[in-house]
Amino acid sequence: MLDKLNEIEKSALESLKSVTDSAALEAWRVANLGRSSALMTVFSEFGKLSKEEKPVIGAAANRVKVKLEAEFESQAQAVKNAALAKSLAEEHLDVTLPGRTKHIGRLHPSTQQLRRVLDILAEMGFQVYTSREVETDEMNFQMLNFPPDHPARDMQDTFFIEAEGRAENPILMRTHTSPGQIHAMQEFSKTNPKDPPPIRIALPGMCFRYEQITARSEIQFNQVEGLAVGKNITFADLKGTIADFVRRMFGENARLRFRASYFPFTEPSAEVDVECFVCGGKGCTVCKNSGWLEILGCGMVHPVVCKTAAMTRRFILASLGVWDQNVN
C-alpha cells in the first residue's frame, strides 16, 4: 500500500509538471485530488485496513495529500503567472489612437471677461448692481448732464425706440451703463435722504450704439462701470483705485497713463491708456501704432448728476472706469 501511495505521488507530480494552462490544471486536480482519484480511493477504503496498517498508511496518505495540494497550489500560481505574463506581453494598445470625448460646455468669452472684471471689483468692495437695457432719454442722457441737442451726444450715437406721446423724453437703447448710476443713487439716497449711505457698486451690462460694426466697434457690447460714493473720496483715490484694477487685470507691470478727457457726467474726467499688450508699446495695428490702448474713461461724478440723483452736495463721487468689450 505504501508503494502504491509512493506510486500515486510519483505519477501525480510527474504529470503536474506538464500542466501549463488552467483547464489542464483543473483536470489534474480532478484526476489526482478529486473524489474518485486514486489517492482519495485510499482514504475511502481506509476502513478496510488492519489496525496496524491504519496509522502508517494514514500518515503516509496524508503526507501525500498535503504534498500534492501544495504542489498543485504552486503550479496553479505558476500557471497564473505565466498566463498574466503572456497577456501582458500580448496586449498592446495603440496609445496614439484618439480618446473618446464628450461634448463640453464653455462660457461665452464675454461672460468670462465680465466675471474677471467683476471679481476684481468685488475684492475692492464694488458689488454688482444691474439695471434695464431700454431707458428713457432722461435717465440715459438728461440726468447725466447731456441736455437735449448737446454736442456731447455726438459721442454716443443712439438707437431710439418708436414711442408715441413722450415729448422731450423719448425711449432709447442705453448707450452706456451710467443710467444705472442714477438708479442706484436714487435708490440709496431714498433709504436715508438726510445722510445718504456710501455706495460702491459695479454696473455691468449690455449697451448699444449706432455704429458701423468693425473689429473695434459694435452696436451691442458689454460695459462695466464702477461707482463709489463717499464723503471723502478724491481724484487721487480714483487714480489709485484704477491703478489697482489695471494691475489685477493686465498684470503688475502694466504701464498706464491718465489723460484729461471729457464726459458730461464726470468732472474732472480722465481717459486711461494701458501700454499695448499686443506689441508691448512698440506700435502695432491694434494700438494704431501709438503704443497705447485706451481701456476706460473715468472721473469724479459731476455735480449736476449728484443733484439730479438727489444726493447731497457733501458727497463727492467717483465714477470708476468704464470697460468696453465687444460681443463675440
Binding site: G125, Q127, P197, P198, I199, R200, A228, G230, K231, N232, I233, T234, F235, A236, D237, K239, G240, T241, A243, D244, R257, F258, R259, A260, E267, P268, S269, A270, M300, H302, P303, V304, K307, R313
Partner: peptide, 30 residues
C-alpha cells in the same frame, strides 16, 4: 457748485494729471 468743479478740473489739468498722487480710498466701505 458746477463752476467749482469746472475750475478745479482746470487746476488738475494745469497741475498735470501725472503729478496727482495715487491713493487708496480711505472712506467707509459700504
Amino acid at each position: 457748485v458746477i463752476g467749482l468743479a469746472d475750475v478745479i478740473e482746470e487746476v488738475a489739468r494745469s497741475y498735470g494729471y501725472d503729478n496727482i498722487p495715487t491713493t487708496t480710498m480711505a472712506d467707509a466701505l459700504p
